[in-house]
Design a protein around this nucleic acid. Sequence first.
DNA 1: TCAAAAGTGTTACAAATACACCCATGT
DNA 2: ACATGGGTGTATTTGTAACACTTTTGA
Lengths: 233, 233
Amino acid sequence: MDSELQDFYVHQDKMYVATDCIIFGFEDGKIKLLVFRRRVEPIKGEWSLIGSFVKIDEDVQEAAKRVLTEITGLKNVFMEELKTYGKADRDPGYRCISVGQYALIRINDYDKELVEKHGAHWYDIKDLPNLVLDHNQMVADAMERLKQKARYQPIGFELLPEKFTIPQLQQLYEAIYQKELDDRNFRKKVLSHNVLIKLEEKDKTTSKRGAFLYKFDHKTYNKLLKSGYNFEI
Amino acid sequence: MDSELQDFYVHQDKMYVATDCIIFGFEDGKIKLLVFRRRVEPIKGEWSLIGSFVKIDEDVQEAAKRVLTEITGLKNVFMEELKTYGKADRDPGYRCISVGQYALIRINDYDKELVEKHGAHWYDIKDLPNLVLDHNQMVADAMERLKQKARYQPIGFELLPEKFTIPQLQQLYEAIYQKELDDRNFRKKVLSHNVLIKLEEKDKTTSKRGAFLYKFDHKTYNKLLKSGYNFEI
DNA sequence: TCAAAAGTGTTACAAATACACCCATGT
DNA sequence: ACATGGGTGTATTTGTAACACTTTTGA
């Protein structure tokens, strides 16, 4: 490394880089968000997204995954960058930018003890408390993204159990879009893509008759993708 | 600020935060990208996106706008965050994350002297040189974003002069989608939204007959947006 | 036997696609 | 008069939206 490099870089400003996770779940026909009591001053004890500072030798993505695993015990969770919150005055403490990342988790898979230990709580997205800093904005942005993205990419399935029924799937989409859907048309459209595998089993928890369970067919979906298919729900 | 706050923040790592601009233009029926000779070591002199470190008291957005104005002389340019490049090893110098932002500019509006002075060059997007670091990836990501976004939001107009013809607009969309479009259907669809104002003037630079000029009608578009309209091209 | 959710088909309407010809004008 | 790009209309197909009844089964 020559001196010119050092000259140039060294005169720049360094700052804290954090990442915050907007963690969505789905339960009882409602989109839910996992929030926490903030563990550090200032505003310690207030509701907050879970986040972490990014370490000097750590990818930003990696940092977000690290926190998510610490809290939920889950790995291989769907997670995607939302956007970066970089206002100079967003954190009253020190200059700190935060990369927002949203995650979709199967609400029954996570380690409940771990979550409780961290003072976490699942809030209905429609009934959120005030969160610290710009976290409410992050949630609003993430929700908007979810709404947009779920239409053209099959990410909704990340919020459901591996095996799910068509009515469950519909409930999910109704929660995401905040709009009722026609059950006949919904079923028709969803099945028309041929990316659901119908199982022999039925789920009888919500009706006497029971509803057939389905699995999302990743293989077929990926094949379709490559051949230029346009998924839409 | 109490001591607990200091304890906690102070033990975290700080790093450089940069922002890089993916600057798109449109000329001769082609999408073009504005690139520069990198001004600092390492890899000084290589082709690169234009960027800057974010100052301690500066919004990330602001930093990107600052550079863009320095280079092109333009203000009020369409610019939007793409994503953040946060791999720990992305910069061989020091740990540095970069927020990628893409900008759409009217290629004939910019200050040519200013651009030349900075050793800049407009490359056809299909014929780019190797860029430093992860900049080629940034461009690929931005191009993909443009493709997706242009379909449902009227951002394409940012690349055209204020006054443009329908064939010009079609050329632009063909360049973005990398696909030929049917001229009759294209015109029909575009005009069906009623967000173009037909002017009296004609542009005669590309044909003897001349083609009518249009302006994008921001007012009407915003009204339609509020009433839940769905733009699509 | 009945209540409650699961599942099925048809028709009307809107939008996307495919496609062929005339128009205006400078050279 | 002709070459060049600008501009228009229609028929077909495809997809979306609206809508009502039958099935299954546990209580």
